[in-house]
């Protein structure tokens, strides 16, 4: 550990970056999708006849909210395996 090469430093930074990217990146989608899911449950409780439509809308909204989580995943994998 005494002589840390430049390449080691870069790899270490990439690993820390990957953890932070995936860790922080997971917060937003988790909260946001949960919120959307909650509103869907409320809406279905109020109008059960439209359950199919409401579930579809919920899933579309969650898929969009998921995208940032997937961006984080991709960047984390890139940091670990590619750069």
């Amino acid at each position: 550990m005494e002589n840390i090469s430049g390449a080691d430093l870069v790899r270490a930074a990439a690993f820390i970056g990957a953890g932070i990217a995936m860790g922080l990146g997971a917060i937003g989608p988790g909260v946001g999708e949960g919120f959307a899911g909650g509103k869907a449950c409320e809406a279905i409780g109020r109008n059960p006849d439209e359950a199919g439509l409401l579930t579809r809308t919920m899933l579309v909204a969650q898929a969009v909210a998921e995208s940032t989580g997937i961006y984080s995943l991709v960047v984390a994998l890139l940091l670990i395996f590619v750069v």
Partner: peptide
């Protein structure tokens, strides 16, 4: 750090 922060959002959202 990854698992720590990564668990935060889904826990609240769920």
């Amino acid at each position: 750090l990854c698992m720590g922060f990564g668990g935060l959002g889904p826990g609240v959202g769920n």
